[in-house]
């Protein structure tokens, strides 16, 4: 899933400082699963903002709404009747949400309440870790099922660097050296020789380096008969 962290309250309050009537829009997708922008978090942010404004003796009127997903136009359309009744709209979805909203409602101002961080999963309750860099050409089978592009600080493809020490990466003692794990796993499986082959230079055209990406599923596109 896409993982995000909420922006600080000060930053969010500063973005909508001059606005009185605000709509806070959550998302039931990834940000609900990573406990950043779902129903509970929307209510908590709304209450925190009301407390801050009341403390400062300033007026505020916040409504909340949680969409099924903010990355689908059919759900974004569900707020079409009320969206322009507000001075500003804050989205608690990942970076996709406020963009879909901005594209759908050109007259309204949309602000992001979260920082979208990575594609990952929960390793324990309350802890999420990066697992995928979205490079567009998955090759994890070449590395014992562990991705060195997302999980090695240097995205190395042929083994660990000199910064690998006792299984940890030099950037942080709490960050595992994924190449240490890859080599260990391959040794345990008795398949270490799989790593000996020289891999050609990776094409990054399918990653962000090739510009904004687009995925088309012909069988789903309406009018394609």
């Amino acid at each position: 899933m896409i993982v995000a962290d909420r922006k600080s309250l000060d930053e969010i309050l500063a973005m909508v400082e001059g606005d009185k009537k605000i709509l806070l829009v959550g998302c039931k997708g990834c940000v609900t699963v990573c406990n950043t922008g779902g129903l509970k978090e929307v209510e908590i942010l709304a209450s925190s903002m009301k407390i801050a404004r009341k403390k400062a003796g300033k007026e505020i009127d916040i409504d909340t709404h949680v969409l099924e997903r903010q990355c689908d136009r059919e759900y974004v359309e569900q707020i079409s009747e009320t969206v322009n009744d507000y001075d500003a709209v804050i989205s608690m979805a990942c970076g996709v949400g406020p963009q879909f909203l901005s594209e759908a409602y050109k007259e309204q101002k949309f602000y992001p309440a979260v920082n979208t961080t990575f594609f990952g999963g929960a390793t324990e309750h309350g802890v999420w870790e990066e697992r995928c860099a979205g490079c567009g050409t998955c090759g994890i089978h070449n590395f014992g099922g562990l991705c060195p592009i997302a999980r090695c600080a240097k995205s190395l493809l042929h083994g660990p660097c000199g910064g690998s020490s006792n299984g940890n990466c030099e950037i942080n003692k709490d960050t595992e050296c994924i190449w240490d794990s890859i080599v260990r796993k391959k040794m345990e499986q008795g398949q270490l020789e799989d790593l000996l082959g020289v891999k050609g230079a990776k094409s990054w055209k399918t990653a962000r380096d090739g510009g904004p990406r687009r995925s088309i599923r012909e069988e789903l596109v309406q009018g394609n008969i």
């Binding site: 209510e43 908590i44 209450s47 009301k50 407390i51 009341k54």
Partner: peptide
């Protein structure tokens, strides 16, 4: 969390 915040609010 929201119960405690609402009380304060």
């Amino acid at each position: 969390i929201i119960h405690l915040l609402n009380a304060m609010e």
